[in-house]
Amino acid sequence: MAHTADADFKTRLQNLLPKLVLSPSLAMVLVFVYGFIIFSVYLSFTDSRLLPSFGWVGWENYSKLWRLSHWEISLRNMGVFAALYISICTVLGLGLAIFLDQKIRAEGMIRTIYLYPMALSFIVTGTAWKWFLDPGIGLENVLQTWGWESFRFDWIKNRDYAIYTVVLAAVWQTSGFVMAMFLAGLRGIDNEILKAAQMDGASNWNLYRRIIIPQLRPAFLSAFVILSHLAIKTFDLVIALTGGGPGRATELPATFMYSYTFSRNQMGIGAASATIMLMTIAAIMIPYLYAELREKK
């Protein structure tokens, strides 16, 4: 059987086609993601200020960065924010999912109400909470006009407490989503095991503690990975809710990077802070993605 040159070309094209189709996306990702990462990491070792510049300064930007109180405050705020945000969302999400899994009437409507904040922009969330928490017109003022004159709630204007208002708004936005993840996990658990354990006289508390919650491990892991990466990327919410203030009370690494790069003309330091953010996320995401992708093989 002799192949004509034409048919040969066609088969080769057919064999090449899948890779050709994939290549534009791949090229974009390689340039715009990995190329850019290399460029930014490189900039973090240069004397860039208003514009990128290529004078090598070694680790100077990093040592400057770690001496800045502004950066230290951003990191400390991130620690408080991430710890509270992740743990409250997880506990609340799991609790609400367990409650919603008890043959609740109107479950669909309740789920819709719990989940809708996820569809909103952080700027919208920030605006709504900003004015609701504002002592001048919001909750404090309302309760005072209702007759509780000694009522005080000025956290959003208070240096020591403002970070907790960011936690509150962020939990409001994402806890419903975490609830949905746990609910999906609960619905996947085999009822036969539970019935068998019940026969043996296990209480509801023990069923959850010994059998159900341990089986939710994958949901816990996904929730942790998603929440921690959202926490590190938190930017818009702070901009809309507090603008980083009062003072620097709610500055986070993302807002730090933005102001050092674009308004303070310290691009080298900005790039160094972005590199640290990337490394933190990579330390969480890469092992997770590696395990997920291997599993499927």
Partner: peptide, 9 residues
């Protein structure tokens, strides 16, 4: 990725 890492380039 935190998009801060690609903003400048």
């Amino acid at each position: 990725i935190p998009f801060q890492i690609v903003l400048i380039p």
